[in-house]
């Protein structure tokens, strides 16, 4: 196995009116190529900050992070944002083709690729629609297709299904698992749903309450391809519960601080 992501002692401190706030403290993580790593933690634990550091949107206050490209010309990483990050002023087709357009891929070629991915996420009939004509689940499919169409080596997913209702979420989890298993890209997946992380991930990293840092990790032994059926298995419930036992104390600490 080759190392794809190496983060060492990452700390991010934000200035604020009430003095500096430490969003992330001494966080280290190594991700192998082709691995699907889920990061789970209570809200405000800095998991989104970590993802944005990986995505090059935030520079850490200290520590270092390295992503190892296989192909220098291909895009290295892209973020799958939540649904509201797709551009309302672009059609579904132009949203999905966005990364390709920024890289200067010719119009016919990028439209062809985008249409292909729009079809794969089941939105073929909506290629020329604008986002306001779509439901939340459909918008999230656009956001996922936008990242896959750009074909980066690493996918960074920032609670991509967090804003969806429970039923739509189950459908999209299934689709995401299927898309990923076909491509086997390296994935860092932020979520606060334990079930989602067990269903999707190869490895689950838990973070502590604020200021967030590494707490512990679990490896997920279930065979692939996986589907929602897995959530009915006793081993699935046992692993989810074991993770919850570790996480519970952190969640309670977070809640106490908010009171």
């Amino acid at each position: 196995m080759t190392v794809k992501i190496e983060a060492k002692d990452l700390t991010k401190v934000y200035p604020s009116r009430n003095g500096p706030i430490c969003a992330l403290r001494d966080f280290s993580l190594r991700v192998e190529e082709g691995e699907f790593v889920c990061i789970v933690g209570p809200s405000g634990c800095g998991k989104s900050t970590f993802l944005r550091i990986l995505g090059g949107l935030i520079t850490p206050s200290s520590g270092r992070v390295e992503l190892f490209p296989r192909d220098e010309k291909a895009p290295l990483q892209n973020i799958v944002f939540q649904e509201y990050a797709i551009f309302p002023w672009k059609t579904v087709l132009d949203n999905v083709a966005f990364g390709l357009e920024m890289r200067g891929v010719p119009r016919t070629k990028r439209r062809e690729t985008a249409r292909d991915w729009i079809r794969k996420v089941g939105l073929a009939k909506f290629a020329d629609a604008y986002p306001h004509q779509l439901s939340g689940g459909m918008k999230q499919r656009v956001s996922i297709a936008r990242a896959f169409a750009n074909d980066p080596e690493i996918l960074l997913m920032d609670e991509p299904l967090g804003a969806l209702d429970a039923q739509t979420r189950v459908i999209l989890q299934g689709e995401l698992v299927r898309l990923w298993e076909a491509s086997r890209k390296t994935v860092v997946y932020i979520t606060h749903s334990i079930e989602e992380s067990v269903l999707l991930g190869d490895r689950i990293v838990l973070m502590t309450a604020h200021p967030g840092t590494y707490k512990t990790e679990f490896s997920v032994p279930f065979a692939r391809p996986r589907s929602f059926e897995l959530t009915g298995a006793p081993e699935f419930a046992r692993l989810s519960y074991a993770i919850w036992q570790e996480l519970e104390v952190e969640v309670k600490r977070t809640m106490e601080k908010q009171l």
Binding site: R119, K120, V121, G122, H132, Q133, I171
Partner: peptide
């Protein structure tokens, strides 16, 4: 200039044609 601002009802519930989702 801003066709995306046109008032239109969003597609009902989750209208994506899941059936048409091809295998990757």
């Amino acid at each position: 200039l801003m066709p995306w601002q046109r008032e239109e009802m969003p597609a009902s519930a989750d209208g994506a044609d899941v059936g048409g989702t091809g295998k990757v």
